[in-house]
C-alpha cells in the first residue's frame, strides 16, 4: 500500500489556485524528486503531507492516516514525517545537540541519555560528529543543513520531506549535503525531495515529478526525463535547468 497518497487534491491561497486535481501515490521506500518552475506549487505539495498547509478539497493519506481530516491527530503523523527546509531552520539559541534531542525528549519522552547517544550516532552519520556543542550560527551552511537532516532523523521517521535543501548553499557545500541524502536514499526510508539537482535525481530517484501551475504535468523515471520527456512544458523547463 502507498505510504503517501494524494487523491483529487485542490488547494487555494485565497483566490490563487495552487494545487489542481493532484493525484499522486508514493510507495514505501521510494525516492521521489519533484521539479518545476518557481511558484508551481512544489513546496505547497510537500507541506500538505504534514499539514503545514491544509487542503480545501480531496484527500491526503499518510501511512493510512487522513491528514485532511481535522479530527486526525496531526502530531502522530508529524512524528513519522521528518522535514528539511531550504533555510535549515535550526534553533539558533540551542546547541547542535539540543536541536537534535528536543523532539525525541519532548515528544517521544525518550530518556535524555538515550536521545544524546542517538544524536551522536546521527552526527557521525552526517559527518559532523565533533560539533555537538556548537551553536548553529558557528557552523557553515552545509554543516547546518546536515545537522537539520540529523534532527529530522532523530525521530526515526518513515518519511523525509526535503524542500530545496541545497538552494541556500554555496556551491562548494552542495555536494556534502547531497552525499548525505544519497546515503539516506539507500536506507529504505521514503523520501520526497524538491530539488533541481538533476544529478541527484539521476543517481537515486525512483521517480521524478514535474509540476507546473499547480498541476502534476509528467511523472516518470529519471531516464525518461533525460531522454524522452513527453510534454512540451517539461522539455522547455528541462532545457532551462540542464
Amino acid at each position: 500500500m502507498a505510504i503517501i497518497e494524494f487523491v483529487g487534491v485542490n488547494k487555494w491561497f485565497d483566490k490563487l489556485h495552487v494545487l489542481r486535481d493532484v493525484d499522486l501515490s508514493i510507495e514505501r521506500g521510494e525516492v521521489v524528486v519533484v521539479i518545476g518552475p518557481s511558484g508551481s506549487g512544489k513546496s505547497t505539495l510537500i507541506r500538505c503531507v504534514n499539514r503545514l498547509e491544509t487542503v480545501q478539497d480531496g484527500q491526503v493519506i499518510v501511512d493510512g492516516q487522513h491528514v485532511e481530516d481535522p479530527r486526525t491527530d496531526i502530531r502522530r503523523v508529524r512524528q513519522e514525517v521528518g522535514m528539511v527546509f531550504q533555510q535549515f531552520n535550526l534553533y539558533p539559541h540551542k546547541t547542535v545537540m539540543q536541536n537534535i534531542t528536543m523532539a525525541p525528549i519532548r515528544v517521544k519522552k525518550m530518556p535524555r541519555a538515550e536521545a544524546e547517544k542517538r544524536a551522536h550516532e546521527l552526527l557521525e552519520r552526517v559527518g559532523i560528529g565533533e560539533k555537538h556543542d556548537a551553536y548553529p550560527g558557528q557552523l557553515s551552511g552545509g554543516q547546518q543543513q546536515r545537522v537539520a537532516i540529523a534532527r529530522a532523523l532523530a525521530m526515526s521517521p518513515k518519511i523525509l520531506l526535503f524542500d530545496e535543501p541545497t538552494s541556500a548553499l554555496d556551491p562548494e557545500m552542495i555536494k556534502e549535503v547531497l552525499d548525505v541524502m544519497k546515503d539516506l536514499a539507500h536506507t529504505g526510508i521514503t523520501m520526497v525531495v524538491v530539488t533541481h539537482e538533476m544529478g541527484f535525481a539521476r543517481e537515486v530517484a525512483n521517480r521524478v515529478i514535474f509540476m507546473d501551475a499547480g498541476r502534476i504535468i509528467e511523472v516518470g523515471s529519471p531516464e525518461h526525463f533525460f531522454q524522452a520527456p513527453e510534454q512540451d512544458r517539461t522539455k522547455l523547463f528541462l532545457s532551462k535547468i540542464l
Binding site: 503545514l52 508529524r78 522535514m83 533555510q87 539559541h93 528536543m102 519532548r106 517521544k108
Partner: peptide, 29 residues
C-alpha cells in the same frame, strides 16, 4: 522567522511546546 515555528511543529511538538521552547526564548532575546 516563520520557519522556526514550522520546524518545531513538524517535529511533533505541540503549539505550546513550540512557543515555550523555540519561539519565546528567541523573542525574549
Amino acid at each position: 522567522p516563520r520557519g522556526q515555528l514550522e520546524a518545531a511543529l513538524s517535529s511533533g511538538l505541540t503549539y505550546l511546546q513550540a512557543m515555550r521552547l523555540v519561539i519565546l526564548p528567541q523573542a525574549i532575546r
